[in-house]
Amino acid sequence: MITVETYADINQASAALGADSIYLGGGTLVMRALNYGEQNFSRIVRSTDPSLTQITMQGDRIQIGAAVTMASILAHPDLAFLAPVARQVGGPAVRNMASVGGNLFAEHPYGDLAVALLVLDGRVHLADGQEQDLEVFLAQRKGFNGIVASVSIARPNRPEDFRWLKISRTKPKGVSVMSIAAWLPAMAGRLQNPRIALGAMADTPMRAKAVEQTLEGATMDTAGIQNALTAIASQFNPPDDALASSWYRQQVAPIHLRRLLLNEGAGS
């Protein structure tokens, strides 16, 4: 038998979590598990804490509550640069439900938003006050049994430095063959601290650090990005799934990275 506990305060909810329980955010993951009898919990813990749905500006960073939905991101003027990402998660109904916090737990090949958060220096704020780098958090997410309260990201000085490309088989809504996010600040035509992350290329969204290194100080032209295209071909060992084989993903990754970096438009 399953029981549901609802707490007005996120700290109470956090305290109530145990080995037999799971935290319910937007529901798209937990309810799916329950529908398929794949649950390994008997208690569902949820919270109606208003802080979970808040979006706040904090200097050059933005704090996004874990229960903020894709639809809320789309509606928020300060998050306009993230709108292209949120718009490509599910259809309208999913976007009304799927949350920022839940996206961090979506299994391959889902979880496109987390790819974008990765390049934006995402940090995860837990209900118990701890803070973790998103990349570290994603790598350890399997055993996680707490509550994500919010995610904070850097706000790009120039929104156009943030780029996003999602490759899927169907339009306008489709699951990722891969997704690529890039934050490409430049000085005098040369990249400085570029950040690249890919979705659906590993068990979790991942930074492409070898690619980033090749782009440091590079110019954004065919010659400047050549090493990046070579690097990306070997950095990932993506999973096979119904959408694409590992081999296929490896083969097309350089092509899509080139299109993203040279602004050649979505090639999907």
Binding site: G27, A93, N96
Partner: peptide, 11 residues
């Protein structure tokens, strides 16, 4: 607003 009822906890 559209929601997926199969993924919505009834409560």
């Amino acid at each position: 607003e559209p929601h997926l009822s199969c993924l919505t906890l009834a409560e």
